[in-house]
Amino acid sequence: MQEEHPEEIPKPFLGLQRDDQFFLGTLLIAILVLAVIYIGQLSRWGTEPIEIKRQNHLPYDYQIDINKATWVEFAQLKGIGPVLGKRIVAYRDEHGPFQSIDDLLMVKNIGPVKLNENRIYFKPIPISPE
């Protein structure tokens, strides 16, 4: 008597045929490889930092003529905003041109400290011959 061995039929995994299982396995391996490459790029693996040398900041080098400057130009200075800049221009319009930089002390809310902080930004007023 011959024993009959029926051919074993492999059970489908997740309900997929053998070719589908092969395709799905290949696809998952490809996704895994791409994910590892992407994570490697995010971690900057294999790169060296670059040192960037920058120049020092230069101080502002400008001066304004207090008899011609607009309130916007005054507002750029230390401790002088738009309100005080407009007040300086209004004072100049009402009382005439300033004779010296120290005449700015006559404007309300400008004291010696604020004037001395900004003195380097004012052009000297030329002395007019009389």
Rank of each mutant, 00 (worst) to 15 (best):
T47Y: 00
M106H: 07
I52M: 04
K78W: 05
G81V: 03
S43V: 02
S100I: 08
F74H: 06
D61T: 10
K53E: 00
G111N: 14
P49T: 15
V33P: 02
A69K: 03
P97C: 10
Q41C: 00
V72T: 09
E7A: 15
R119M: 06
D65N: 15
I52W: 10
Q63K: 11
I110C: 11
K11F: 04
F98Y: 03
P126L: 15
I52K: 13
I52V: 13
I39F: 04
L42C: 02
Y91H: 11
Q21N: 11
E48T: 13
Q41P: 05
E7H: 11
L104D: 08
L14P: 04
V72R: 00
S43I: 10
R87T: 00
K114C: 00
Q55Y: 09
P129H: 11
Q2V: 12
L58M: 05
L115Y: 02
Q76K: 08
F13Q: 13
Q2G: 14
V72D: 03
L14R: 08
E3C: 08
P6L: 15
G111H: 03
L28C: 06
W71E: 12
I80H: 01
V113T: 15
I101R: 09
D19V: 02
H5S: 14
E48W: 03
K78M: 04
P97K: 15
I31W: 07
I31Q: 13
L27V: 13
I88F: 01
L34I: 05
H5K: 14
L27P: 03
R87S: 14
R92M: 08
Q55L: 01
L84S: 01
P59L: 10
E94Y: 06
